[in-house]
Amino acid sequence: MHTYIIRRILISIPLLFGLLTINFFLIHAAPGDPTDIFYNPDMDPEARENIRRIYGLDQPLGVQYLKYIQGVVLKFEFGYSIAKKRPVKDEILEALPNTIQLSALALLLELSLGIGIGILAAVKQQSTFDNATRVTALTFYSMPSFYLGLVLLFLFAGGVSATHWFPASGMVDIVRHESMSTLGRLGDRAIHIFLPSLTLGIGAAAGISRYMRGELLEVIRQDYMRTARAKGLTERVVVFKHGLRNALMPIITIMGLSLPFLFSGAVIVEQVFGWPGMGRVAVDAAFQRDYSMFLAVNLIFGAMVVVGNLVADILYAMVDPRVRLS
């Protein structure tokens, strides 16, 4: 298994390298350049030229590319962000954990809600619960997350004062967090992450719940479920031990494939809820033509796809003994 993982990672390196190269030339070919953010009549063209020179933007593209690649390969350096005035690595190291935190919780919500509701809906097929969740799931699934975010903001983060239960943005109460007890801080973090992760996770949860229901209903019809019942197992053991694990296998694949979508969803959710993560770094980098930042962000998104698939494959192999990693 270790060799498998290492091999998969090694295979993905040229892939990511190619991605980096394509992105490098794409972003440079895109209209505009990083000094556009200094675009105002107070700024002399001379100052703009100075900045271009400082960042090496005046050099031929090929030279810029070689320098960039050299930094990445030899020193694992990703250059300086023109818009943030700091090494790209610093900005990313600050933002990435926040996005991971948000996405991880969203994934947890997505899976627990999606799987939980899917199971209940399947077990109580055609019940009021099943029908109600079908309609709700469809609603959440088709609702754009920025819209859902705004609705949640309005309902529970200050728009309606009677139900102002959650803060509207940020990761912590920036004024009071410092002076809180450990428990208080934990609670503070929890109420801040709740709405954004819910917004990010609920659409996918809706999808998962329908998949889960379908899969479980499919699995419940399987012969081995009858075998399990014939052994005298309780319905709970039958469904949760024998049914669930089989029904989960397709869900794992869906989940692995959905990881990149979770990240791109984070772009929007982070914007609405002011969550200081990669999504916002990505949006800024693209709009500001912050070349180095843009490249690094895309590299990370690319790596996410690779990791997502790898994790899905490993998980799949863990649940399904018929699959061997090789």
Partner: peptide, 24 residues
């Protein structure tokens, strides 16, 4: 449930699908 698998057992037509593939 006390009866099933204990006093009356059953084996099925399809051995290929009657065992759960994910457990030993």
């Amino acid at each position: 449930r006390e009866v099933r698998g204990n006093r009356i057992s059953m084996i099925f037509q399809e051995p290929m699908t009657s065992l759960n593939p994910v457990f030993t």
